[in-house]
């Protein structure tokens, strides 16, 4: 069992947890992820490592409730435990491998969308600790679902917050802010974009035009996370890759996003059913028009 040392709600549907997982904490690097299970019947849920403390042996995760699995997770409290917590999985961010002196010469732009702010944080923090200041754009639909603003502010070179509805910070999508920054004369050598698939797709469309190499972190459906099932396969530069072992970070300008988004839908109806069944319990008999009950 993996004890939850701290659990808190960041916004009404985004949760933050610090979990005791000594092996993961000892060997993880920014960009990697874990897979968690709440109990014996639960699904295996992949989540990016948002922070870690090697001395205390803890790993921080931040997740959004989107279905049955994350709904169950959101009920866990400080003092509860995860049944399973495995990692670190996937490749560390390329940044970590790069020569620090080379890196210091680069202008780096991070673009975080929604809960994607959480996985961006450790990378910005890692750079900050190595004396490198990066520009960070954080986008959210609206003010109430903005997360980790203070934490990010402490480690970012410059932080730009934007909301789709203009309820806080700048107004508009993250792509608008990228355009503004470039128009203001900022030059970037590399962009790292993490967020919903659709956001990453549009960021890459823009950065391709602007000629900025862009790294994205993909979140396809996964089962084992060790290269055993192939559920996570994505097409990058015309080649099939397993995101759990070859990624999750890839060259965004080469990713086939339409295919990746389509593949995320595979279990949508089945999942929707599980979610409603979990929420409504025995009262779930179909009739919502979405899932067709138990057909």
């Amino acid at each position: 069992m993996y004890k939850i040392l701290e659990a808190k709600e960041l916004t009404p549907n985004i949760y933050y947890m610090v979990v005791e997982a000594k092996r993961v904490a000892r060997s993880c690097q920014p960009g990697q992820f874990v897979i968690v299970r709440t109990d014996e019947r639960a699904e295996r849920i992949p989540l990016t490592i948002c922070d870690y403390d090697r001395e205390k042996g803890t790993v921080t995760i931040v997740f959004q409730v989107v279905g049955a699995g994350t709904e169950f997770m959101s009920h866990l409290k400080t003092g509860d435990a995860f049944h399973d917590f495995v990692g670190p999985l996937g490749q560390p961010s390329e940044l970590v491998h790069e020569d620090k002196e080379e890196l210091k010469k680069k202008k780096i732009l991070f673009v975080a969308g929604g809960v994607g702010t959480a996985p961006v944080y450790p990378q910005v923090k890692w750079l900050h600790e190595n004396g490198i200041d990066a520009d960070v754009i954080v986008g959210a639909k609206t003010k109430s679902i903005l997360i980790l603003e203070k934490e990010m502010e402490a480690v970012a070179g410059r932080l730009f917050v934007t909301t789709d509805d203009g309820s806080y910070g700048r107004s508009g999508m993250v792509t608008q802010t990228i355009t503004d920054l470039v128009n203001e004369g900022n030059h970037y050598d590399v962009c790292i974009a993490i967020g919903p698939m659709i956001m990453m797709k549009f960021v890459c469309k823009l950065t391709k035009e602007l000629n900025i190499p862009t790294v994205v972190s993909l979140n396809p459906i996964m089962v084992d996370g060790t290269g055993m099932c192939g559920a996570c396969r994505v097409t990058v530069g015309g080649e099939v890759k397993f995101a759990c072992v070859d990624g999750p970070e890839f060259d965004g300008l080469q990713v086939n996003f339409d295919e990746a988004m389509q593949r995320q839908q595979i279990y949508k109806t089945a999942e929707g059913r599980a979610y409603l069944a979990a929420k409504e319990g025995a009262t779930h008999h179909g009739g919502c028009g979405n899932c067709g009950g138990n057909d």
């Binding site: 699904e43 192939g230 599980a274």
Partner: peptide, 30 residues
């Protein structure tokens, strides 16, 4: 890469390890 193409490993893992054949399990299977 179409939706509905699986490796046998994925299909069997969902059914055996994750017990998706059982209505009780949270893991879906097509």
């Amino acid at each position: 890469q179409a939706n509905g193409v699986f490796s046998a490993n994925e299909y069997l893992t969902r059914s055996n390890l994750m017990k998706a054949f059982n209505e009780d399990s949270n893991t879906p299977i097509m």
